[in-house]
């Protein structure tokens, strides 16, 4: 099985550069604007798109992404509509990988098998589910692999060498290294520590390793991207989106551009990095 994720990382490897991975919340600030934003991302330089599935109780997220989820829920976003958003995006773009990121409960309630079938049909390539460690692989990871979706695992600074093989065992697509112990939007990634961690993970796997949490600026994106196969930016994009909203939290004429412009400058940072050593 080859997904759009595998294809994209193979292309980037040929080009000798790292991936720029964006994260935004589905339905933030409303479903229609959210679709337009996602459509604008590849042109602005996103190589892989992560889309958050809103959840009332996002235990690993900081205030920015919590608020983004609540804006989306308030605007009527549901898991079904998140899949519709991906479907809408796929009408014009059949190459950019889409990864859904979030928490297990909405998927569990939707029904695992139905969700996997609908996600595949909509054009989803991979899943990152924060509250499903390898110990719970029977729930969604193994069924997702069977359905032809990548299950992308988070590795963290607390994942030691003894535990890494378990974390990597059923992972595919890429490995997402969380550069800090903490929630999204907190702390800053330290590029020396990150490069050591990525090297450590690479001793255990041939999969691409992307790094996220704590990357906000083109400079950090560049320095992280030079040590990894990709740099993920979420909170900074969500913050740019929020700053463009009116006092009631509604989209304005500036919203789509605000996200696209920051995406472009971060993408430039990533493209400025020399490719990570294999």
């Amino acid at each position: 099985m080859t997904t759009r994720i595998d294809t994209r990382f193979a292309e980037l490897k040929k080009q000798g550069r790292s991936a720029f991975v964006t994260f935004l919340m589905a339905g933030d600030p409303d479903p229609a604007t959210s679709l337009e934003i996602v459509k604008a991302l590849p042109k602005a330089g996103a190589d892989v798109i992560e889309i958050g599935m809103p959840f009332t109780d996002p235990m690993a997220d900081g205030p920015s992404i919590q608020a983004a989820g609540l804006r989306a829920l308030k605007a009527g976003m549901t898991l079904k509509k998140t899949l519709e958003l991906v479907h809408g995006f796929r009408k014009d773009d059949n190459a950019t990988p889409i990864v859904l990121m979030g928490y297990y409960n909405p998927i569990y309630i939707y029904g695992v098998d139905k969700f996997l079938a609908d996600a595949k049909t909509a054009g989803v390539d991979g899943l990152i589910i924060v509250d499903l460690p390898p110990e719970e692989d029977d729930e969604l990871c193994l069924p997702a692999m069977k359905a032809g979706l990548n299950f992308i695992r988070l590795a963290t600074p607390t994942t030691d060498d003894k535990r890494l093989p378990a974390v990597l065992a059923n992972t595919s697509g890429f490995v997402y290294y969380v550069s800090i112990t903490g929630i999204t939007g907190a702390g800053a990634a330290d590029s020396t520590a990150v490069s050591e961690a990525v090297a450590r993970i690479k001793r255990h796997t041939k999969l691409p390793v992307c790094v996220g949490f704590g990357i906000r600026t083109p400079e950090t994106a560049r320095s992280i991207a030079s040590h990894a196969n990709g740099a993920v930016v979420g909170t900074a994009l969500v913050d740019a989106l929020r700053s463009s909203l009116d006092a009631e939290g509604r989209a304005t004429g500036k919203t789509i551009n605000a996200v696209a412009e920051l995406t472009a400058s971060l993408a430039e940072g990533v493209r400025g990095a020399r490719a990570a050593a294999e």
Partner: peptide
């Protein structure tokens, strides 16, 4: 029951 937590917490 089970252990539905982020990877960061799993070793703890």
């Amino acid at each position: 029951g089970g252990r539905f937590v982020a990877e960061t917490l799993m070793p703890l």
